[in-house]
Computed example of a mutant assay.
Amino acid sequence: MVEWIVGITGASGAIYALRLLDVMKKSDYRPHLIVSAAGERVIQEESGLTLDEVSEGCQLYSVYDVGASIASGSFPARGMIVLPCSMHALAAMSLGLADNLLTRAADVTLKEGRKLIVVPRETPLHAIHLENMARLAKAGATIVPAMPAFYHEPKSIDDLVDFVVGKVLDQAGIEHALFQRWGY
């Protein structure tokens, strides 16, 4: 089983994380899940689901357990996806502030040269947000803003969600058929 770390923070957009986890659990990818306190609240408010329901089929870690196995470079993760990513978590990651398990796992992912995919979900953006994204990108992270496209003629919110999640999966090297690609 291929190991991926998934972080969910307090930005709006829990629907993206739920769809990502659903796709990963149905494939040969095992999500190691970290959810911030604000992330848990957003999941509850936007989906009505509890963390126990969301984490079924995942290995769940407390965001406060900085000694968890995924906080070490010796943990054999392929990479980490932070979806949705709040500006608070993005700023902490961009500055190397490994003050909880989510930001520590992101820091370790970067130092080990593994794939860190960050999906910010905020608008509008000011200069500090953009500078933090640029700093994180320079450190090796891939920034995939939650910006759906329309060339695939979406018919529902699920189609828009699948497009964004599909772009994240593309960056992770995980095959999917969530949206029709341009020209196919």
Rank of each mutant, 00 (worst) to 15 (best):
A68G: 05
E46V: 05
A146S: 13
L21D: 03
R30Y: 03
A11W: 13
L51M: 06
M147I: 10
L160R: 11
I128R: 11
V108D: 05
L97I: 04
V35H: 09
I143Y: 12
A17E: 06
A68P: 04
I174C: 13
H176R: 11
P84C: 13
D158G: 03
P84A: 14
G173R: 13
P120H: 12
A127V: 06
A139I: 00
Q59F: 14
T50C: 12
E56V: 01
A91T: 03
E153V: 05
D158C: 02
A172E: 02
G166E: 03
Y16S: 03
H88F: 07
A14S: 15
V119T: 02
Y29M: 10
N100S: 05
M147E: 07
M93E: 03
H88A: 15
Y184T: 00
H88R: 15
D99K: 11
A146C: 07
S86W: 14
V82Q: 08
A68V: 02
V119P: 03
Y184N: 06
A38F: 08
L136G: 02
A127L: 14
V144Q: 13
Y16A: 04
L136K: 05
M87N: 07
P145L: 13
G96Y: 07
I128F: 14
A141W: 04
S36C: 05
F179D: 01
G39Y: 08
P124A: 08
A134E: 04
R104M: 08
